[in-house]
Design a binder for these strands. Structure first.
Lengths: 362, 362
DNA sequence: TTGAAAGCGCTAACAC
DNA sequence: GTGTTAGCGCTTTCAA
């Protein structure tokens, strides 16, 4: 009986090999996957040869390589990544961890655009992305994400409240890269925007537009926001203005109750002519709250947000914002992680902040 | 020299075990991870015992288990998931694949909220999430995501243009669950909103508000959108209205040029008094375009979107929208996947559509 | 150029 | 209860 090259795993060559491979205990049906030994048998070579052929080893002559590659493709064979990783003591999977107050922290569009950019870069490098979120209160979970050996390192998005744990990991030699503020005592590689400059740009722009009493919405406990606030203060100082404590409204990123926070603040009848919010989501909530009180944006109150999320241009009025380059951020995070994995000394990447002027501050 | 129990992996018991484990070829430094054999040696038991203890086998007496667990914790030991998976021929990782026109499809907030919900559910079940995106033109890549053996199955978000490939996978017995429309010939488990009902709710609401010429923005080539359009038509028919072809504007989800599309349509001076958009992002772009032409929402034109993204309530005017329950969707997707992996017959989950009335259609 | 054999870190029969 | 042994699917010496 003729043996077709593309017949399912079975065409054995020796009696010993002829016995059916034991089926797994799974209840499923077609769980049987073709594996390297099958290819080897069908190609009449050893598994080593198949392995070498598939990995493009120069030891294998082109003709053989072609034949084996073709056979593998026709069987839809894919190397078992787990087994290969185990043997090679290596993996091309990166752990991406979203840190936040709650699991819903994923809701900020900007965080997502960074995630997307990291994913794009990993795709380019033919690497995989293992995603997880962590909320406060379980610092050791971060290490576990690495210690279980599934990933070559961690890309961490968000650092507030995790700085110490991140330093601990870095000290242990865990390869990683963090999106956040460049804290002076960070032992880990950081990618972040130029927050001080961003704050400065936003505030000086508003001042140039004639604003004198610029409110700041954002939590200075948050390292990135603290820097934006410094830039804001620098711009005020340059203009001979001083920051009024009554114009500082702290709120946390991802806070669902942002609208209520803003409303409560407005109830206090503060005197102000502009708002600089530390995120676009907050700026949107603010604009909505102002509108409900018949305060016109930008005529009566000018608003500038932060991040320049994709939707910012689709708002009415469109939202002025300080752009953070998510695409570059993603690339830099991956690249710094790879450097860390190679054992290079850690470095920091600061990305430029650019003010995008739109209607809300016109 | 005294040997502390918490000293790093070394404290050997026999001469043979005393030789240092070979270091990997990695250039990094502290790559040496503690592993089961180390724990075993230090606890004076065999690796099997450690394995059993750590996995909570009833064979191991509580005291021993405690002792081993404690030792493992003190060394920050984590089981090597890859090795365990290989041996158990099992994995607790799920592949989540975002399908889209481009890799940037991740930009729609609603897709993200589903991703978040899937992540939450997987967390609850102590499973991991391997994320990847796929653009059109490489159908076989979807299968590869599974065949490489890293995941127990796939959760696929988006189905437009992939239906055949999805059916092919399902026929092969690949465990999966898909977010999309419940197509009649789908061989795979689907979770989706009640799109027909959603379209009906939106349109009949607008009609009740006095609208007569309701434009529909969305691509009927897209199965979910086609259903929403059917519901829209049903509502019109009930009211004795007919859909005017001039009031149909197709656009693709994730299209960055949505604003331009809407502007071009408006340039044609269409006669309309309402817009029902198949996504909130499109509804936002539409509202902005209308505003730029001095068309007041909702006074002159009422707008209803779809998805009820978190930002919808923060807009000015706040956006009426048909809510799709992302949280339930995520849970259902994971649960259907688990059923599929268990070999159950595939079923379909349709989630209710709820109209959230806000200012844009008041 | 190729194959045999060892072994990555773990789990599960099977024996004791 | 516990240890010994075999082996998950692959890669890589080493020898031919």
């Amino acid at each position: 009986m003729p043996r077709k090259a593309t017949s399912p795993p079975s065409g054995a060559t020796t009696d010993a090999a002829d016995q059916a491979r034991p089926r797994g205990p799974e209840s499923g049906s077609a769980r049987q996957r073709v594996q390297m030994a099958d290819i080897a048998r069908m190609a009449g070579v050893s598994a080593s040869t198949v392995s070498r052929a598939l990995s493009g080893s120069p030891l294998i002559p082109e003709a053989t390589r072609q034949r084996i590659t073709e056979l593998a493709r026709s069987l839809n064979y894919q190397i078992n990544v787990g087994a290969a990783n185990l043997r090679k003591r290596d993996t091309r999977t990166v752990g991406v961890v979203l840190l936040g107050e709650s699991l819903q922290a994923i809701s900020d569009p900007f965080i997502l655009s960074i995630l997307g950019a990291v994913g794009d870069r990993l795709d380019e490098l033919d690497m995989s992305l293992l995603l997880s979120r962590l909320k406060h209160g379980q610092p050791q979970q971060l290490a576990q994400r690495y210690d279980s050996g599934q990933v070559l390192g961690l890309i961490v998005i968000g650092q507030t409240g995790w700085h110490d744990e991140l330093n601990r990991l870095a000290a242990r030699g865990v390869p990683m890269a963090v999106w956040g503020a460049c804290l002076s005592d960070a032992l880990y590689p950081v990618v972040g925007g130029d927050n001080e400059q961003g704050g400065y740009l936003a505030a000086s722009h508003l001042i140039r537009r004639g604003c004198q009493r610029i409110a700041f919405f954002g939590d200075r406990e948050h390292p990135e926001v603290a820097l934006r606030h410094q830039g804001y203060q620098r711009a005020l100082a340059e203009a001979g203005l001083t920051a009024d404590a009554a114009l500082y409204l702290p709120y946390r990123f991802g806070d669902e109750g942002i609208r209520a926070t803003v409303d409560a603040w407005l109830d206090g009848q503060p005197e102000f002519d502009a708002v600089f919010a530390a995120s676009d989501v907050a700026a949107m909530a603010t604009t909505a709250a102002l509108g409900d009180r018949e305060l016109r944006v930008p005529q009566q109150v000018k608003v500038v947000g932060y991040d320049d999320i994709a939707l910012a241009g689709h708002l009415r009025p469109s939202l002025s914002s300080v752009r953070q380059p998510a695409r570059e951020a993603g690339r830099a995070l991956v690249d710094l992680l790879m450097e860390a994995a190679d054992g290079s000394k850690h470095r920091t990447v600061m990305l430029p902040a650019v003010l995008v002027e739109r209607e809300s501050s016109r």
